[in-house]
Amino acid sequence: MGEPGTKEVLNLEELQASGGVRTGRRHVLSILVENKPGVLARIAGLFARRGFNIDSLAVGPTDEASMSRITLTVDGATHPIDQVTKQLHKLIHVIKIRDLEPDERVARELALFKVSCQDGESRAQVMQFTEIFRGSVVDVSKRSVTVEITGTDDKVEAFEDMVRPFGLIEMVRTGEVAVARGRGAT
């Protein structure tokens, strides 16, 4: 397909079918990198040119000043993930990559929800949900409440489902960060 050797016109469905068969479970990649300029651009660029979508991305300093940690979630079947980690390894500034399996990681994400509350009753309900989700109210105005939720992405999404009916003005998420369970380093 896509070879100029065939004259047949390709229809759009065929094109989409050939390009879009990349579904599988969600992977959390924990990438330790040298804290050098451009390192994030190299990683993002690599994903873009190999045709992978990054679902979320979180970058921050580590316990060592010369290193940064990138936590990246990506949707993919096992085979392409393998190719992506190998390609990532080829970047000189990438030191270590770990594909953290669901049962061997602790993952957290922080999200801020700005929810519309037209009256006292809806505000009370939102605050009740916040309590159930062990979140906290970080800002309040006459007609809105801003809530902070921390947890796995499932939990964040569950909270989103609960408050969306009130009118979700805005939602901001950090993307998950994760560490390996147990004594060993990620």
Binding site: P37, G38, A41, R49, K90, I92
Partner: peptide, 16 residues
């Protein structure tokens, strides 16, 4: 040029 060539180098170094 380091941005332009990022996808096609083995590595690149912009001197700072």
């Amino acid at each position: 040029i380091s941005g332009i060539t990022m996808p096609i180098v083995k590595h690149s170094i912009l001197i700072q």
